[in-house]
Write a protein that binds this DNA or RNA. Structure first.
Length: 509
RNA sequence: GGUCCGUUCGUCUAGUCCGGUCAGGACGCCAGGUUUUCAUCCUGGUAACAGGGGUUCGAAUCCCCUACGGACUACCA
């Protein structure tokens, strides 16, 4: 599918934070564009002034930047097809909607909301579909039912009006969808949607067709929730005499439990983020958690999202962005909705974490240590990372696996004390301190040898001694290889902790 | 209610277009192994073609019906 002039767009409305379903939509647009040497355009659809949310636009831009998705044209970047914000394109829509009226493809309507509601109720009680259509429009107040003079009078007197599309009475409209194939809908099931609102702004339906045409969009890749209005859009292209772009309607992202599409609330309810970045509602101050703040690497987040609804047809699961671009094709996007699985998301992050170099990881970990007020040496932290990274899903987990290198045990696990701490334990531990004095090169290998020699000499079992050493150093029975822990702590710290443990535990008795 | 879309292991999915391997992989889960511990890791296992009819020597795959799920149904996008 090598098209010379692929231009796709992501067109969010700034009504709040972008959730992961939206991120996936942009991602697929991006992958499709790059795969075909095309362009990705960001267009802000802010035609609903009532739903404007402070900071939402910035949030969207910041989120996608974090994700590593780059636009070719946008408000910030500019481009030949601007402005890229619909509220700044008002006059354009006005011109085109007039054209529709002149061609008898649209009409003025003066109905109040009460009158509309009355009409819908009436049709419902008659068991008919409550829509403004070829039949019901004749009973309403509009330029098709009213006389020319009456319409002119109302318009001249400044009465508010909307402009509605005139849908043909009975005609099959075909939408060709790249994912679903041909979808046919009869126009009698469509209603005369408002194209132009009484506040002088276009609705989504008009604005998106006009802009997509003017911006030379070749493919419209958007969520499945738009599929029902796609026939309307096809009709509009026809009315304007424009070539319609190709359509691809992406399946929805579903909530992990039960059914239905993933919503904002599911995240907090089930304990995983639904948004790429943390979002603080400007009005309620309510905080919604984000993937970035939860410790996900953007690469892992994107990788996970890419595989939710698309697959390469091979068994490869780990992809860089470039590999995704190379492998991506709309043909391999599934038809059915995908439930989001938080567990697999963690697994992806783990894969990316262990793939990082010790150096890279150590730098990340040092930031975290710094936040805790701990300063340490890069080299030391690097060695710790090497030792424990297999055990962590997130950088944050590194702390739980290695906190004992940076602070003394706060307590000694009572169960282990009871089970392993014998009468002769203090003596054994003290003797080991002495033996360690003779180790010149204090490395795991030598430490292991000294301990093992000591054990066989004294006829003691590994489990008997190792567990209490670990207990003394760490405070519990968890952690990585003990010989390496001892090496990293050093001879002096070892002695100090052993003595401290003996003192504390013996006192408790 | 109406319109449209969808349905393979618990989850993500391969296989469907061009009917023919015990329906394959991954996450999770379970078991065993490794280990001084916990985790990782390794090995193995569990588990699915929504149901019913056709067409056919043969259907997850083609056709029809049913069921279930979802989206949409605003002067929101």
């Amino acid at each position: 599918m090598k098209n010379e002039n692929v231009r796709v767009r992501f067109a969010p409305s700034p009504t709040g934070p972008l959730h992961i379903g939206g991120v996936r939509t942009v991602l697929y647009n991006y992958l499709f564009a790059k795969k075909n040497n095309g362009k990705l355009i960001l267009r802000i659809e802010d035609t609903d002034q009532n739903r404007f949310v402070e900071g939402a636009e910035k949030y969207i831009v910041d989120s996608l930047e974090w994700c590593g998705i780059k636009f070719d044209e946008s408000i910030d970047l500019g481009g030949e097809f601007g402005p890229y914000k619909q509220s700044e394109r008002k006059e354009i829509y006005e011109k085109f909607v007039k054209q529709l009226i002149d061609n008898d493809k649209a009409y003025y309507a003066f109905d109040t909301s009460d009158e509309l509601e009355e009409m819908r109720n009436r049709l419902k009680s008659e068991k008919k579909n409550p829509q403004y259509d070829a039949v019901s429009r004749l009973n309403m107040k509009n330029s098709l039912s009213l006389s020319t003079e009456e319409v002119k009078k109302r318009l001249d007197s400044g009465e508010t009006y909307v402009i509605r599309i005139k849908i043909p009475e009975n005609e099959n409209i075909e939408v060709n969808d790249m994912i679903r194939g041909k979808v046919v809908v009869n126009s009698s099931k469509l209603d005369d949607k408002v194209l132009f609102k009484s506040d002088g702004m276009p609705t989504y339906h008009l604005a998106n067709i006009v802009d997509d045409h003017l911006m030379e969009i070749s493919h419209v890749i958007r969520g499945e929730e738009w599929l029902p209005s796609a026939p309307l859009h096809v009709l509009l292209y026809r009315y304007f005499g424009w070539k319609s772009p190709e359509f691809a309607h992406l399946p929805l992202l579903l909530k992990p439990d039960g059914n239905g599409k993933l919503s904002k609330r599911d995240g907090d309810r089930l304990g995983f983020p639904v948004f790429p970045l943390q979002w603080v509602d400007p009005k309620t101050k309510e905080i919604s958690s984000g993937y970035r703040e939860a410790g996900y690497f953007p690469e892992a987040f994107i990788n996970m999202l890419a595989l939710l609804g698309w697959n390469p047809g091979t068994e490869q699961e780990l992809f860089t962005m470039d590999e995704l671009i190379e492998a991506f094709s709309i043909d391999r996007v599934g038809k059915s909705g995908s439930k989001f699985d938080p567990e697999k998301a963690k697994w992806f992050n783990h894969q990316y974490l262990i793939a990082k170099s010790d150096d890279e990881l150590a730098k990340l970990y040092m930031q975290l240590l710094e936040d805790k007020g701990i300063t340490s040496e890069l080299n030391f932290v690097k060695r710790i990372c090497k030792l424990i990274k297999e055990r962590a899903n997130f950088v944050e987990d590194l702390w739980n696996q290695s906190f004992f290198f940076f602070q003394l045990p706060e307590s000694y696990d009572a169960k282990i004390v009871k089970k392993k701490w014998k009468e002769n334990t203090p003596q054994i531990l003290i003797e080991l301190i002495d033996r360690f004095e003779n180790i010149n090169e204090f490395v795991a290998e030598n430490i292991e040898k000294v301990i093992k020699d000591y054990l066989s000499e004294k006829n003691l079992g590994m489990g008997q001694v190792m567990n209490v050493i670990r207990l003394s150093l760490v405070g519990s029975n968890k952690g990585p290889d003990l010989f390496t822990i001892i090496e990293l702590m050093g001879k002096e710290e070892f002695g100090k902790r052993i003595k401290l443990a003996i003192k504390c535990i013996e006192n408790e008795k």
